[in-house]
Design a protein around this nucleic acid. Structure first.
Lengths: 235, 235
DNA sequence: AATGTAGGTGTACGCCGTACACCCGTCAAG
DNA sequence: CTTGACGGGTGTACGGCGTACACCTACATT
């Protein structure tokens, strides 16, 4: 009875926060209903009184992350508003390295994600974009809108436990690999800002993200200024 | 004994092709060692004499897909060479809808993928790109280089069995959703080429892909022509 | 005091990946 | 011709997973 009082009663919210903490700390592959229940001091089936199944749990976790994205900055041009909101989304995602893969593997958007996208479209429309161009822009941005670039192989996705004692040295390329892929070897040391590798080992991820983001935003700005429509494409 | 002769002996290659066929036909979530062994008329553990484990099986499957990408077109400008190779990669990926998720969920590149990336960098370098710029360009392109745009929610990823009797009508947006997300509702019907939706239901995916690809390529071309380096960024 | 109900429990089922011991056909060496 | 090694298919078994289903219990309502 003292026990019952000691631990707070289960609730959907408490479950979601525990799940996010578990995934943050031990990697998404350690997130099982059994592990999660254990962390909450409860039997696995107890969770099902609050979430329908594991997929719905994942959806809820995604909504927690999306909820951490800052609201849009008011009274700014569309370009600055979009840029800063996306960078805020990126920061949220970086606190939860499991989130990109979780989002990509779900096959329907949650209401919170839809609300975020809706507000992003709203910013574009308010900035003078035609619905047509806004549509294509949303597609072109893809999941970068949510703050993650789709690197082919993302070091940060390696699940490993966070925090202490995981230096994971840059490693560069092992010599025999460098020999087989000379162009990769060449550019792996090329980035002027840092010792880096295209497979994502030592790069300044933030720089690369902003590089790509600005490349897109500048191109989009140019299209918008020339009243682009899909019927007459450039080139 | 007649049986033993009838069915070809197992081999890594035969396993990989059966695995690809199974994932193509029944979805990646149906690809278990047990199902795969069943399709091959063999006991599950037999597979382990040819592949180390399921992860290595997935790597092999990815290599099969990458092997379907056309070689680079010779004697073309970098822009055309890159563009057409990426579109070829896209066609290969579209034959295997499970591949994008499989690629994203692996955390190290296979040699075949590295070879593909290496050759792509080679094309850029031959086109006059500095190693520095080539590096950033590879990052900016991200997995689009392999032919898939990272849509937030990709209808084609819905696993379902291919081929017959799966019309999956566009559905537009359900009215109550449209009411809550007015901007999404607006742009969902906006694309002039087709009745479409930002959640990927009725869009012309090919158009959207090329839109984003050309947006990037045009921006990249502009950077290259002005001898961009990371030390002096535009804007 | 009776009763409905929300929420935690225990057991069980069918999947999964795969470790490990086994066994059998082929083929080279004696 | 025997023998022994070995490549490759088999059978059993283990621990983990998601979750269906019956249960039990404490509390709120009447």
């Amino acid at each position: 009875m003292a026990e019952t009082l000691r631990r707070a009663p289960l609730s959907r919210d408490r479950i979601l926060r525990a799940a996010v903490a578990l995934a943050d700390g031990a990697g998404i592959e350690s997130l099982s209903m059994r592990n999660l229940a254990h962390d909450l001091g409860v039997v696995p089936m107890a969770l099902y009184k609050h979430v329908a199944n594991k997929d719905e749990l994942l959806d809820g976790m995604i909504d927690v992350v999306v909820g951490e994205i800052d609201p849009p900055v008011p009274d700014a041009g569309w370009k600055h508003a979009v840029r800063s909101r996306i960078l805020s989304a990126r920061q949220a995602l970086r606190r939860h390295p499991w989130a990109p893969l979780a989002i990509e593997s779900r096959n329907m958007a949650t209401p919170a994600v839809l609300a975020y996208l809706d507000s992003m479209v709203g910013t574009l429309r308010a900035g003078g974009f035609s619905a047509d161009l806004a549509h294509h822009v949303m597609h072109a941005m893809g999941s970068r809108i949510l703050g993650f670039s789709q690197e082919l192989f993302d070091a940060s996705r390696r699940a490993g436990r966070s925090g202490t004692a995981d230096p994971d040295p840059p490693t560069a390329l092992p010599p025999e690999v460098a020999a087989r892929f000379p162009h990769l070897a060449e550019i792996s040391g090329a980035a002027s800002h840092d010792d880096a590798s295209v497979v994502g080992q030592g790069c300044d991820d933030q720089f690369e993200f902003e590089f790509a983001l600005d490349l897109l935003l500048d191109g989009i700005e140019r299209l918008q200024q020339q009243d682009w429509t899909s019927s007459r494409r450039p080139r």
